[in-house]
Amino acid sequence: MSAVASETKTRQLPYVVAITEGVREVLKEQANAFVAGEDVAGAGSVYGYYRGLLDEFGADRIYDTPISEKGIIGLGVGAAAAGLRPVLDIMFMDFIGECMDEIANQMAKMRFMFGGSATLPITVLTMAGAGANLAAQHSQSLEAWLAHLPGLKVVMPATPYDAKGLIIAAARDDNPVFVVLNKMSLAMMGDVPEGPYEVPIGKANVVRTGKNYTIVTLGRMLGQALDAAKQLAELGIDAEVIDARSVQPFDTEAVIKSVEKTHRAMVVHEAVRFGGFGAEIAAQIQEHAFDYLDAPVARVGAPFSPVPFSPALEKVYVPNAERIVVVAREQLGI
């Protein structure tokens, strides 16, 4: 964890307020930063995480946009190319389909295409995650779409501490960074220091140390993996749980270091398992630590279907601690 000055007060705050605090620090420290997105100013966003910022910073710093995702990302790309540091909000991650050209062909590639002459310090906050009965178009985790695009960075805060620290790090970064938030984490409580601090992008977080099993998680799956680790402990499995924090760049080194110690690994994410980012992690492990592996790398993710609406279906769709334990037992033959 980043060093925090000793006099800094740490409070227990929900994830949603940690987001607000992160954005507030960004607007305070960067005069060229502004927020733009759907319902962000007057309403403070549908989940309320910009609440109070309009009053605090004024209408010159936070803008309600039309429901126009191409326009929002285009606004950010043009404004950043002209020297500003936009903080953009794409209300639900599912909506990136509306602006994929602006993301994939403009934002991600402009610097490279222009031989390094353009700098795009853009932060995009967007809400992923299933479990709220919002069905197939408001629940997806699409980080793999973004991680596949050279030029973008993608982080997935799992805790209130990380939400604030990764937002601040994203806004200080001179590259486009997507901060993929999770709607099921909004009420999650955790320690959050006052004032600004960074959680470095590209560094994984070893949340639980263990001797003979490695679980790598993305975003909200950290909590599920920690629960699973407790259950696995009763079966004699001492799991190390690593929160990737960042999928692009991905901290391969941290994972390999762990696997060299534990010899067995699992990757857990909420996104559809097939072609998900976990496939890349598994490939990295076998490329770099094949000789250390005692078992194939296991993967836990959503089944190959859109997110279902019915609570009865969604409950079995989203990966959880129980599934992690079942898959681990199959993998390890215990």
Binding site: K70, G71, I73, G74, L75, G76, V77, G78, A79, A80, A81, A82, G83, L84, P86, E102, Q106
Partner: peptide, 10 residues
Amino acid sequence: PPIAMGAAFA
């Protein structure tokens, strides 16, 4: 056009 709009915004 969206990029020009963003530059105009700046």
